[in-house]
């Protein structure tokens, strides 16, 4: 009977799938990222409401934000997404040194972004308690910065684990997740940059 053979085929494929924990983990990580993005969406929604309804948006003596240095920062962060992709390809081809080189490059670019952010924060003439403008600015950039920091930390762990012999032979879920997370952090930054720096 055809239906029986169809079921038999399904059984075969299911048994393969049962051992495919990497696919399950990847699915789970996607679900998590979708959920995490809603926190950012909520903050963005809050920002838009505050910006459009607040009567005194800019604190006294504040002209707005300088866009030059943050633009460089943005370019560095966005390009690091391509660099981590190259690292992933190297790992796919089992070329560990290429993987390590490009992963290190990603880590450096991520750290540069954090450094640039810190320098920018230091030079600003408003603080966290300077009205809604200050509060939303530090909340958005700070919460995103925490995610960048987490991303760099994950990359560091992946980098160190590459020195454990055979670590990535069975599953490279760790690096897939790290890379996905990094792309996520990038996409969030693009929206954030548009909302805070471009739309002034």
């Amino acid at each position: 009977m055809t239906s029986e053979s169809a079921i038999a085929n399904q059984v075969e494929s299911k048994i393969v799938e049962e051992h495919n924990e990497e696919a399950n983990s990847k699915f789970g990580f996607w679900v998590f990222l979708l959920s995490e993005s809603v926190i950012f969406l909520s903050f963005f929604a809050g920002y838009i409401v505050y910006k459009t309804t607040s009567t005194d948006w800019l604190p006294a003596g504040v002209e707005g934000l300088d866009t030059h240095d943050p633009a460089i920062n943005t370019v560095v962060l966005i390009s690091s997404s391509f660099v981590i992709y190259v690292a992933e390809r190297f790992l796919h081809d089992k070329k560990l040194w290429g993987f390590r080189f490009f992963l290190l490059a990603t880590m450096l670019m991520g750290s540069y972004f954090l450094y640039g952010q810190a320098v920018e924060w230091q030079g600003l003439e408003f603080g966290l308690t300077s009205g809604l403008y200050g509060a939303t600015f530090y909340l958005l950039t700070g919460f995103h910065g925490l995610h960048v920091m987490t991303g760099v930390l994950l990359q560091t762990i992946m980098f160190l684990r590459s020195f454990i012999p055979g670590n990535y032979d069975k599953s490279s879920f760790g690096i897939i997740a790290t890379s996905l997370f990094w792309h996520f952090v990038d996409v969030i930054w693009i929206i954030l940059y548009g909302l805070i720096y471009v739309w002034q």
Partner: peptide, 10 residues
């Protein structure tokens, strides 16, 4: 998944 993050934000 889609609701809790909003509460977390608040």
């Amino acid at each position: 998944l889609f609701g809790l993050p909003a509460l977390t934000a608040g």
